[in-house]
């Protein structure tokens, strides 16, 4: 799947403008398509009938209150959870055929922090997918991992056991791990959780770089103030999908109120 080769990338405008790539016929390429998706835990649905299209080349925020089903949506897209209804396609094909094009940074706490492994090793795990079963990582994989660590500013910590890193540093390690996967679509579940302002800016710059390279980036995000500054697309989610589209068109008090239930007043700069 290399749809990025035959598309014109129209991404040269203002950072905050939506920049969607289109193929020769002018149609927008959909990186992810979710149809009528319903997901339940123990038969209690937490996502109801979600339809969602994520165009290629966007930097999208998913926003919604705690328990809205944001993490669940990402896990269902990635096939980690089985939906009770509906389907997901990545560039027109089911996820299990497109694995190597998708990278995922989980919400903190889903790994065994006391596992005997160091930062470099964790980042190397990102290369396992392209290696496939049985084949072992070699020099090339190690080099890729070191470069990714350098990019997120974590090279000095490469030999640290991961539980001995601070929360923000751990977050950067997982970002580096996603980077070495060299995917087309990145899903990140709250990458800014518990990181300081400098790290947050460093991370958002890396994400913007990814988008510039034609990648699609989907981020669960809690800080509504920064949505217009960081992202060009946004999806409002609360059990159902409230709205999805370019930030400049749909990031308004009306949708925020529908999603969060209370009267929201976030001034949206044009």
């Amino acid at each position: 799947m290399k749809s990025m080769d035959n598309i014109k990338n129209t991404n040269s405008k203002d950072e905050t403008t939506a920049s969607i790539s289109a193929n020769e016929a002018g149609a927008v390429v959909m990186a992810v398509k979710v149809d009528d998706l319903t997901v339940a835990y123990n038969y209690k649905p937490v996502l109801w009938d979600i339809d969602l299209e994520i165009p290629e080349g966007v930097l999208m925020a998913i926003v919604g209150p705690n328990g809205a089903g944001k993490s669940t949506l990402i896990k269902a897209i990635l096939g980690i959870l089985k939906p009770i209804a509906g389907s997901v396609s990545i560039y027109g094909k089911p996820y299990h055929k497109q694995r190597s094009h998708v990278a995922y940074v989980p919400q903190k706490g889903s790994v065994d922090w006391d596992f005997p492994t160091v930062a470099l090793d964790v980042v190397m795990m990102g290369t396992y997918g392209s290696l496939g079963w049985i084949k072992r990582p070699g020099v090339k994989e190690k080099k890729a991992a070191l470069e990714a660590l350098e990019k997120v500013g974590m090279l000095p910590f490469k030999n640290r056991q991961i539980s001995q890193l601070s929360g923000g540093q751990q977050q950067r390690i997982f970002l580096a791990r996603a980077l070495v996967q060299d995917a087309s679509i990145y899903f990140m579940d709250e990458p800014f959780q518990g990181v300081d302002a400098t790290t947050e800016i460093a991370i958002i710059n890396i994400l913007k770089e990814l988008r510039k390279a034609g990648k699609t980036v989907v981020v669960v995000h809690h800080d509504l103030q920064t949505v217009p500054e960081y992202f060009d697309w946004v999806t409002f989610l609360n059990v159902k999908k409230i709205a999805t589209g370019p930030v400049k068109d749909i990031f308004n008090d009306d949708n925020l109120t529908k999603t969060y239930g209370i009267n929201y007043k976030v001034s949206v700069q044009k």
Binding site: K75, L78, G79, I80, H96, R99, S100, V102, Y104, P106, S110, V111, D112, F115, T117, V122, M125, Y128, G129, L131, G132, W133, I134, R136, P137, R177
Partner: peptide
């Protein structure tokens, strides 16, 4: 044969699943 698969699925089952192991 399966050292890396055992490692990644023990450390992070979510990643392991998404990588196809």
């Amino acid at each position: 044969a399966f050292f890396k698969e055992l490692k990644v699925s023990t450390f992070d089952p979510g990643l392991s699943a998404s990588l196809g192991f």
